[in-house]
Nucleic acid binder design. Structure first.
Lengths: 347, 347
DNA sequence: GTGAAAGCGCTAACAA
DNA sequence: TTGTTAGCGCTTTCAC
């Protein structure tokens, strides 16, 4: 019953270009050229090779190919999580462009862990991908791993979660403008006690959103109040809910909430419902990101829409440009994308 | 201005084990052994190698390593999309196990396209991954690509979207039981005109859910009615919405909806709201999958919860087992996981 | 147009 | 414990 089968895997060893060459009595070089569609080859020879490859059920070994050509036609993408709409949709945008240019996309998630991000980036570089698009984890404050990769000649494009300290192509949301605009919207709705639920200050994204919020207040002569600025370290529905419960125990309750991410706002909305708080009458709630859920919850969430798919496309274009140009990236641009205010029922 | 910089990439060529060997006046074999933590090596030698590697800023070339060792320590995962909770959460489960065993996970999405699935699987195999976990696209009805990969000695585990025609490890939801249970729940709520919105029959998943629905009806003496069975080919919020609009033009309106996926149910819920249909009084709506959104919409959606994270973990365990055992997979098991009914406000 | 040959960087017998 | 020596399968000069 538990006797091992004598010949485990069907280890008839794979067909290589050498096999094709021998059968055809040509050199491996010729076969290689034919397979790669090189021009300097006689059409008949090429056809013969292609036919033989098919007959023998030949499959190229990409490892060998990449090793000797020093090109993999693969780009690596690192995001904090694929579990949220913004990230997964960005990736679709990246793939959309990459596949057109015949590049494959390898997706990795850091899970917001710096350690895992390090590992992934190192693996990617050691696997000789042609380029990397990365959005930093919330824990990342040291960027040596990126410098190292770039020094090794691998182009890197920073995406959304970026840092000023690295000179390379970047694409980000104009978080300052977006946060300012949505705060102004709240102010225009006659809200004065607007609480900002922000994310970890280690992220530029979060700092910018906070700054935009403050700027809008100041313009209305309202001095930013530390009590009205909450800093979260976790991104989840639950933290949004817990926060609102804490806020509601205060003497002076807020009349509006601007959350740095939809996921937080949705959690808050849910908790508000359970606490019997009427939205938007008693409390207006706004998010950021236009998560796909935001349109479907009730009341539908007011938020800033980020064109994630297009941002992914742009990132891919920038990276492919760096790869193909093979230039130093010193002079690369930083693109800032304006988000769009989506006014819905929650404000 | 547009003059190219003379030295493009910093092409100081990478340090290899040969460089380390020369500096240390040992052989490359020794260096290789030290780096891989082989036991048959003198501790001092090992230390010296490690130190030199660090000093020289050595980074291993995984391509070369995999090429010669014929192991990559990478498993490939192919899913229709990472954009939905079930899939992204399954992947987290896979990663959770894989990383513990020191395997990296490469994620790919087929976008529900058979052609792209083919390409991805071929690339994965040609990149000599150690194993593949795959959930088929909705278009996939031919499984030769999987047979081919398995014949080449690469273990494959089928995940959720499977086929009977391939003998290998599989893990699926018990869709029949789940669909039957949720339909029974609807019946218990005194619904008799229950419409099933199903997915493409090409997917076993969808056929099973339909079968479960029918079985529940039959047990109550209700004959399945083709007019009450709708087949969708797209998975999106919009199709859910459009469908309910069509249904509502009928003379005899349904009193319940069992959608084969939450995303459809959520779209329907949204459309119902816009049409002024009261849920659940006039129309009960149930989904399948317990998408993260389902808990937060109003009314909260009744659905079947699939333990996606755990299913991912199990898939990874099965695959790793096949990889490590290096056995033929003929006798592999097929695990079927029972989903859990989550009764909420929509029914 | 084609072939010969030298690698790409690493692993893995087999010897020593 | 270490070194020698073939490769792994493919690409890419450089001749012919």
């Amino acid at each position: 019953m538990d006797q091992k089968s004598p010949q485990a895997k069907p280890l008839k060893k794979p067909i290589t270009i050498k096999d094709i060459a021998e059968r055809l009595k040509v050199s491996v070089a010729t076969v290689s050229r034919a397979l790669r569609g090189s021009t300097e080859i006689k059409p008949e020879t090429k056809e013969a090779v292609l036919k033989m490859a098919k007959d023998l059920d030949y499959h190229p070994n990409l490892l060998a190919s990449s090793l000797s050509s020093k090109r993999s036609k693969i780009i690596g993408v690192v995001v904090p999580t694929i579990n949220r709409f913004f990230w997964s949709n960005s990736i679709s945008g990246i793939e959309n462009i990459a596949y057109k240019e015949n590049y494959k996309v390898m997706i990795f998630q850091s899970g917001e862990s710096y350690k895992k991000e390090l590992e992934i980036v190192e693996t990617l570089a050691n696997s000789r991908v042609d380029g990397i698009i990365i959005a930093f984890s919330k824990e990342t404050t040291n960027y040596d791993h990126i410098e190292s990769v770039m020094n090794r000649g691998i182009p890197v494009t920073l995406f959304e979660r970026v840092t000023e300290s690295i000179k390379t192509c970047k694409i980000v949301t104009d978080d300052f403008a977006g946060a300012k605009e949505i705060t102004e919207h709240l102010l225009a709705r006659n809200r004065r006690r607007i609480v900002h639920i922000g994310g970890p200050r280690s992220l530029e994204v979060c700092r910018e959103r906070l700054a935009g919020y403050r700027a809008a207040l100041r313009e209305q002569g309202i001095a930013p109040d530390p009590n009205m600025e909450i800093e979260l370290s976790e991104f989840s529905f639950d933290t949004g809910g817990e926060t609102i419960e804490r806020l509601w125990r205060r003497l002076e309750k807020p009349d509006a909430l601007f959350c740095f991410a939809d996921i937080i706002a949705i959690g808050a909305l849910h908790a508000a419902h359970n606490l019997g708080i009427s939205v938007p009458e008693e409390l207006a709630i706004a998010g950021f990101g236009d998560d796909i859920t935001s349109k479907f919850i009730r009341p539908a969430l007011t938020t800033m829409a980020q064109p994630s798919f297009e941002m992914g496309q742009t990132a891919a274009k920038m990276l492919l440009h760096s790869i193909l140009e093979n230039e130093v990236q010193e002079d690369c641009d930083c693109i800032s994308v304006k988000p769009t205010l989506m006014v819905r029922d929650s404000t």
